[in-house]
Write a protein that binds this DNA or RNA. Structure first.
Lengths: 269, 269
DNA sequence: TTGCTCCTCACGTCACGTGAGGTGGC
DNA sequence: TTGCTCCTCACGTCACGTGAGGTGGC
């Protein structure tokens, strides 16, 4: 079968078939050594149609290459996993759209008094990792449990735990994120050398913050508060130092949606 | 404000800002003629943040450029319209995923007897247009009404109306599509010269077809039947001529999901 | 003076579409 | 012999990221 006929019957373009050949995703049954003419076999149609259908889902060729070589059951699972990611990304975008719509429709971003407090020098235990948005909760739970275990038996904790978001706020991809737990720690050797847990000392600094309810501690509802903190710092001639933080106050698990569970804060020089 | 500071405060990259400058989407307040240094103004932050948020939705820059220049109300509408398209495309993909899952899980594609009939030479009135999938219903309704109006008062209709899908079957983008209505027509001047309605004569030909229920007359449920028709033609040594057709039998509006409302067919040489 | 920031190319990414210019097959 | 199909570059698309190589500003 010539490439033209194969293209028609597989619903792929000739150009696409040439690329899939080059990538080894769908090599012709034979290639004429002299002319370079590609010849396809009828038995290759199934694979070609499968590739065509997966491409219509906008699945990257690399992932398609993995999936078409799997057993059907494993293929089904790989497809489901990938699709879960697609849907997760979409629901994030959807939230952003409805947020934008409310802004377009003249709904004022919520205002909140910005407060200022001084944080004394203190030691923090921290775990640092790249996480995607859906992984955030699991990262928080696990890391918090580990830090809790590490600090138990020490002289005590020295404040509420907090998350630091480096890079963009809640960026869709992979913002590095750090969970910190202030401690009164006199035995730094609780931290093993090769662990991902670190100890560092934060110097005394000021911190501007707003109190957020559980409902507001989400993305993109949090965005106007981030902007408000930045604006506050600018208006008061203070330089933000470092990334935004969520100081987790109270217990989020049983909290009502309008209970304050977070102080969104920014450290100041 | 330097480009670096503006980038940080707008949550855009420096590279992105340079591109938006080049495109005129977000030109700096001033550019040093000698050095090329860009200077941004605080008042540009709002626009920049809006662009940043819209880009996170994966909206193309061209559309962003339109939207940020609109009044809020018009912007809201433009965003909503665009998002409707995104959701429509997604629900199409979602349908394809669930179809694929059922195939992966070993569910056999439904079998149906392929039947053969001879279509005599006949005249058809037709309207030809590029439509996207969500527009299909509207296209069908409007065009059918127009053809009905045109053929009323003539000597009568000569068979069920049918849709021809050129290009891919129900392709996501813009498959050209033709709605045809066979007529007994002795006064060809019902068709005005500059109208998009055409008259042509289809020669006598054979047609292979399967009867589909209303539920099966959808995408991608229809796919295995398309493949089956093609396979049938091949197995019987017949050459398909032209694109697949949906012959619309009965009235789809009040039909039950498992009532036959369509003959999916393929014309043969 | 030393870093740091900024500048402009230029190339890579991803999955093709679309010619240009040339050849094979019936 | 004439179209038609096939071939291989090569460039464009889209919105950047990522250097290379060089300069400005404090």
């Amino acid at each position: 079968m010539t490439i033209g006929e194969f293209a028609e019957r597989s619903r792929l373009s000739i150009k696409a078939l040439r690329i899939y050949d080059e990538l080894g995703l769908l090599a012709p049954a034979e290639v004429d050594a002299a002319t370079g003419y590609r010849r396809y076999d009828e038995s290759q149609l199934d694979r070609a149609r499968q590739v065509a259908v997966l491409r219509r889902l906008d699945m990257p060729l690399g992932r398609i290459a993995e999936i078409v070589d799997l057993e059907p059951a494993a293929g089904a699972k790989a497809l489901a996993d990938w699709w879960t990611d697609v849907e997760a990304e979409l629901s994030e975008r959807r939230a952003l759209v409805s947020y934008l719509q409310s802004r377009f429709n003249g709904e004022e971003p919520p205002m909140r008094a910005v407060e200022l407090r001084t944080i004394p020098e203190r030691k923090v235990l921290s775990i640092n990792r790249h996480v995607t948005l859906p992984e955030t909760d699991a990262f928080f739970r696990d890391s918090f449990a580990r830090l809790r275990a590490l600090s138990t038996g020490l002289e005590g904790i020295a404040g509420a735990p907090f998350l630091i978001f480096y890079g963009e706020v809640s960026e869709d991809g992979n913002g590095p994120m750090e969970l910190c737990r202030p401690v009164i720690l006199d035995t730094p050797d609780v931290v093993e050398p090769n662990s991902d847990v670190e100890v560092r000392v934060e110097p005394e600094h000021d911190e501007a913050y707003v109190r957020l309810t559980k409902r507001e501690t989400a993305w993109p509802a949090m965005l106007p508060f981030c902007d408000a903190l930045e604006a506050w710092a600018r208006d008061h001639g203070r330089q933000p130092s470092g990334a935004l933080r969520q100081v987790l106050v109270g217990d989020r698990r049983d909290a009502a949606d309008d209970a304050v569970t977070c102080h969104l804060s920014i450290a100041l020089r």
